[in-house]
Design a protein around this nucleic acid. Structure first.
Lengths: 340, 340
DNA sequence: CTGTTAGCGCCTTCAT
DNA sequence: ATGAAGGCGCTAACAG
């Protein structure tokens, strides 16, 4: 049988209340007594039953998710997954609030963070934007002991407790490796469509992509990056122009969202079909994969990211460890042959 | 506040004990009373607090994992993951026993199932072998209300409650798609190395592979399958022979385990480097990927499979639903560019 | 058939 | 500074 608080109390010769004070680092215990209790905990190998503790406390985990209000399928999916999590709240003891902020807008993000902080939730998750003000706002929250984690796009240099998202440099490298092999030694130019160079995930994907093309596929030249703001219409215009200016384009790497626009542009010029690698599996990219318009899709599973974020926030709030391997968000690669 | 058993008792005008009997479908309640209680449960929207129930019951989940004793890295990894789960048992209320059986041996598997059944555990997981005796043994256990799930290799036609493993047809299709694109229109022969055609996962991978090659890459011819028994030495010999007999081999799809042998054979003939797709990321395949000896590795994450199997078995034992998307085991595709 | 009561492991007033 | 007692939501004897 696992040792309980009663065993500790017996062994240390104190009451349950004192044991509890020591366990929860509350004041009102003489140093000597505390030491006795701690010795008992140690020697018995006690580990607290979190479920029982939560039952007694009636604990719920108020969490705030700050998400950009971008109008693209990936972000819609992310929102949906948070809503699903909200539906599970009763059994998971969570109380999740979604806050929407304009995309790529540091000031709004900082304001949202401040407001979330005022609520003193058990944890905060956000899609970060690379900005020092954001960094400071995050650090201020962490300083209060509230765990903050980044979602989808990380913010190194901040004190965030965790990043729930893929390794974007590896994602970019993978795109480069696939595109290079699919193009198989042909010589020519490839274009890159990004959302915004303001977010770290897009910058890192480009970095990985560029590195692999340069190292392993020197016959390919990368054209200057076009930005589509992750908005379908902007993306469409950018890709159309790209294809007009370079009629002999061999490939396109779409490393952001708004692929609806990319696909529209590809459809508009069926005679010049480049090899295309895109990110995020949505209804649109899925159809394009099936049709052969897109050749491979790199995906991050929004459901996994959200569930992982919640598990990690709860664990951090309780100060218990997580299973690291379980929380690594993987890059899914989809070809038309393995669509789920 | 969520309704509790007390609320039900009040509303139905009965005692806690009666509510509990109804909730747990135990006998000793008049039909009329039962109906009243059920009406109260319904109208209050009651959902039981599993954590509290488990606390009261002192519940633990005795589970049996039946694993083949094959000497290859993938199976070693699978064993390791179960051991990790055993280490977490205290906090997860599980009590896991590992049973080892010879690989590809239906009779031993049936014997192990019978013995596990005798223990009346809360659930059983096994790596299935395609065999009617195994099917019957599984069905007999399910008939007793003990959930059985298949791991890595499924057994359709049995009553197993769940399959924790990848879609092997899709895996084979993916291998075919990648190999075809990497070979990019070249004309010639490709070889296939399997473990045994007795296990369903290998048969399905072959099926998917063959279909895609035939449909999308008609310039490629698939040679008759060689079996390596998932044993490194047997696999090495098989591949060596294959390469000797076909000096102009364009590609190899290794759809089973024992890739240590495949790699040794490839190294022995550096002058004739075919394009190679293999399964399972291990220390050996990882090194071969880095070295360019293998071009892509399809992987199933053993840790995810084991954790998923445990979650599902517990859920089935409790009769509660699982999050389907969370339990889908994905096919990871690794190139040298996205090694974790 | 139905109800009373104690208790799972932990936390929290309220006294002392 | 410490302890006694009651309760979280649920289950399980044991009585009636």
């Amino acid at each position: 049988m696992r040792p309980t608080v009663h065993d500790i109390a017996d062994q240390a010769g104190v009451s349950l209340a004192t044991v509890d004070r020591v366990l929860n680092r509350r004041p009102g215990v003489r140093a000597a007594t505390r030491a006795r209790v701690e010795a008992a905990i140690e020697s018995l190998g006690y580990v607290r039953d979190l479920a029982a503790a939560n039952l007694a406390k009636g604990r719920v985990y108020p969490l705030v998710f700050i998400l950009p209000s971008s109008d693209n399928s990936f972000m819609h999916g992310l929102h949906d997954e948070v809503r699903h999590a909200i539906a599970r709240s009763p059994t998971e003891r969570t109380d999740i609030r979604i806050v929407e902020v304009p995309a790529f807008d540091p000031a709004s993000l900082v304001a949202a963070l401040r407001q979330a902080q005022a609520e003193q939730p058990a944890g905060i998750a956000l899609v970060a934007v690379e900005d020092d003000g954001v960094r400071e706002a995050i650090d201020a929250i962490c300083a209060e002991g509230i765990p903050v984690i980044t979602l989808v796009s990380d913010l190194p240099g901040s004190r965030r407790a965790h990043y729930a998202g893929v390794d974007n440099i590896a994602a970019g490298r993978t795109a480069g490796g696939l595109l290079g092999r699919f193009l198989h030694g042909r010589k020519g130019q490839v274009g890159v469509l990004a959302g915004s160079m303001l977010v770290r995930d897009h910058r890192e994907r480009l970095e990985g992509f560029t590195a692999v093309i340069a190292a392993d596929h020197p016959a390919l030249t990368i054209l200057p990056v076009r930005e589509g703001r992750d908005e379908p219409e902007v993306a469409r215009a950018a890709v159309s122009r790209l294809m007009e200016e370079h009629s002999d384009l061999l490939g396109i790497y779409s490393l952001g969202a708004g692929n609806r626009g990319l696909i529209a542009a590809l459809k508009a010029r069926p005679e010049a079909k480049p090899t295309v690698i895109a990110h995020e599996l949505t209804a649109f990219t899925r159809a394009a994969l099936s049709d052969g318009l897109i050749d491979a899709v790199l995906n991050q599973d929004a459901g996994h990211e959200i569930r992982s974020a919640i598990r990690v926030l709860k664990a951090k709030a309780d100060g218990v460890p997580v299973i690291a391997a379980q929380e690594r968000i993987r890059i899914d690669i989809f070809l038309k042959d393995n669509l789920p």
